[in-house]
Simulated assay, not measured.
Amino acid sequence: MALLHRAKLHPTKFELLAAWLPGRPWYRGPANADVESVAAYRFDDPAGAVGVETMLVRAGDGPVHQVPLTYRGAPLDGADDWLVGTSEHSVLGRRWVYDACGDPVYAAALAAAVLADAGQAEVFFEVDGRREHREPSMTVTGSGARGTSVPAVGAVRRVVQDDPTLIVTDTVELAVVRCLDGGHRATGATLTGTWDGQPAPLPLAYARPV
């Protein structure tokens, strides 16, 4: 379960991404364009400490890009290269926003989603002491059998910034599709997604134990 607050962020996630995306080697959109949301999904952090959100965004007339992010209340040791930026949250205070491909919490959640169809997090808003359910803007499905044993991810050892972006951990190799233009074909254990305007499942990520 992901519990969100109706709060303000400064700068916003989209402002951070507008400055960060044009410097990525896999980015195929225009520079100096506003970033808009297409859809999003979240994973649970079992420890409840890290926000794990994957955003599907478009800049200007460019293609849809997949951008996994993690939100932390303190810097992640050794992850300066993955820092998208910091933002002030009106409820939680300063948040460190990371490219999730360098974050082991995301790697573990993605491995479970692909290999064991662990699913996406249910999202709730905290409003005046009560919780309001938010309908998801997209649906993701893993090709692995639910309940399959997934190797524990302890560390991210290497990341290759390409499309797909390769994440090498101590137990699993993951690949995250960045440009969702329909040019990737599913092979092996796959996470697929559908959203408004995209009723046919598209591959989002792949995983294999090592």
Rank of each mutant, 00 (worst) to 15 (best):
T192R: 14
H65F: 01
T194W: 00
L21G: 04
V159M: 07
A40N: 15
R130K: 14
G29F: 02
A189C: 04
N32G: 13
F14L: 13
M1Y: 01
G142C: 11
R95W: 05
D34V: 12
D99R: 04
D80A: 15
P30W: 02
Q198V: 12
V52C: 10
L191K: 09
T70K: 01
G193I: 08
V176C: 13
V35M: 06
T194E: 07
S143T: 15
P22C: 02
P209I: 01
R208S: 14
T171Q: 12
R185M: 14
T187P: 05
R185E: 15
V123P: 06
A145E: 14
Q198G: 07
D34E: 15
L83N: 11
R58P: 07
R146H: 11
A109R: 03
L174C: 00
G60E: 04
T70Y: 00
S149K: 13
A59K: 03
R28Y: 02
T187F: 15
H5G: 05
P68N: 13
P63T: 07
L115V: 09
A189M: 13
R6K: 14
W82C: 05
R134S: 14
A18C: 03
Q198T: 13
L21D: 04
G23A: 15
G48H: 01
H65K: 01
L115G: 08
L3R: 14
A49K: 13
V97M: 07
F124T: 10
G78I: 12
S87Y: 07
L76C: 02
G23Y: 07
A152F: 07
L110G: 04
E15N: 10
W20C: 03
W96N: 11
Y106G: 02
L202K: 09
V67M: 14
F14T: 14
V84F: 12
A59T: 10
H10N: 13
G182I: 00
D128Q: 13
P203E: 05
L202N: 05
Q161L: 15
G60P: 05
P68Y: 04
S143D: 00
V168Y: 03
A47F: 12
A31W: 02
Y41G: 06
T141G: 00
G29Q: 10
V172M: 04
G182N: 12
G51W: 01
Y206L: 08
D80F: 08
G62L: 00
T70A: 02
A111N: 01
S149L: 12
A33D: 05
R6Y: 06
G197D: 00
P203Q: 12
A175R: 12
S87F: 08
S137C: 11
W26F: 11
V52D: 07
G129L: 06
D44R: 14
A207T: 04
A207G: 04
V168G: 00
Y106F: 15
A145H: 11
V123L: 14
